[in-house]
Design a protein around this nucleic acid. Sequence first.
DNA 1: TGATGAATTTAGACTAAGTCCAATCTTCGG
DNA 2: CCGAAGATTGGACTTAGTCTAAATTCATCA
Lengths: 153, 153
Amino acid sequence: MAAARKKNLRTEDASPSAPQALAERLERHGVRPSAQRVAIASYVLGTEDHPSADQVWARVKERFPMVSRATVYNTLRHFTEKGLLRELVLAEGRQVFDPVMEPHHHFVDDTTGAIRDIPWNALKVAKIDELEGLDVREYMVVVRGVARGARKG
Amino acid sequence: MAAARKKNLRTEDASPSAPQALAERLERHGVRPSAQRVAIASYVLGTEDHPSADQVWARVKERFPMVSRATVYNTLRHFTEKGLLRELVLAEGRQVFDPVMEPHHHFVDDTTGAIRDIPWNALKVAKIDELEGLDVREYMVVVRGVARGARKG
DNA sequence: TGATGAATTTAGACTAAGTCCAATCTTCGG
DNA sequence: CCGAAGATTGGACTTAGTCTAAATTCATCA
Ligand SMILES: [Mn+2]
Ligand SMILES: [Mn+2]
Ligand SMILES: [Zn+2]
Ligand SMILES: [Zn+2]
């Protein structure tokens, strides 16, 4: 009966992309549902693509050619602040370098942005080998939070 | 007795930053040890900072003010290709957006760059709560590799 | 020692991603 | 309908990264 999408991670999947339902969803999150915002939402809130801001812009322009880049960037930031989206930093483009070549995990300090190493054996990931259809080359746990205890000593 | 650094992840820690030892280490990895490269190596191969390329440039310039930005970028790429460094993409700066707000893990396809979701329960991370001195806000496993089986079906 | 070609370095142009801003347009309460 | 707040817009600006062509350094060998 139900929509039977490929993945079942998505939550608020009641009535997916109907502009009406989308507008209500924006309102529930405290976002005023302008035409541009609904157009942007109708793509980005439903995709599994993890798109960049410019990719969102390109997609939205197909149906709404007059939307500006600034609006897309503003709207994505707004959605993120309002809890409709989150930003990931897993994509190529911004690089930092790590001289530790052995497998290990990472802690990213949310307040300072600093990245710290977590030794491989400090954590254990189970069931990696059960992932279907993926040739795993490497993996790591990325932990985000704040370092307790003043760093500056 | 031994140097007793804070972390014990680093491998080739024999004679750390002596320019002589560094040059030999570069040679062992097939990197010709020019003065610039040794200067860059002496910072970036020993740091725990996970610096960006421009941060490396800034540091190296303090002791070697005439080094060019292109050289630093070229050298970091070279070191990375030769297995002396690796690049991480955990830093703010390049953003992609994810409408799935529930905790889940990610698979990054090394050939296409595509990012796919891995359901939270597909993996299990143990000992997160034992991390000392860190207030963990969230964490995820980042898996890199290639997707088997043609995607296009 | 000097010639020569390869490897490296360099400055600066160029690109892509993201931010910011001032002007304009839209919406909404009164 | 009016005015203020909110939203959108084009374009300037910034930052990170790449690329190129010229100059420099280096290794090798006559
Ligand atoms: Mn790269
Ligand atoms: Mn951001
Ligand atoms: Zn690391
Ligand atoms: Zn995701």
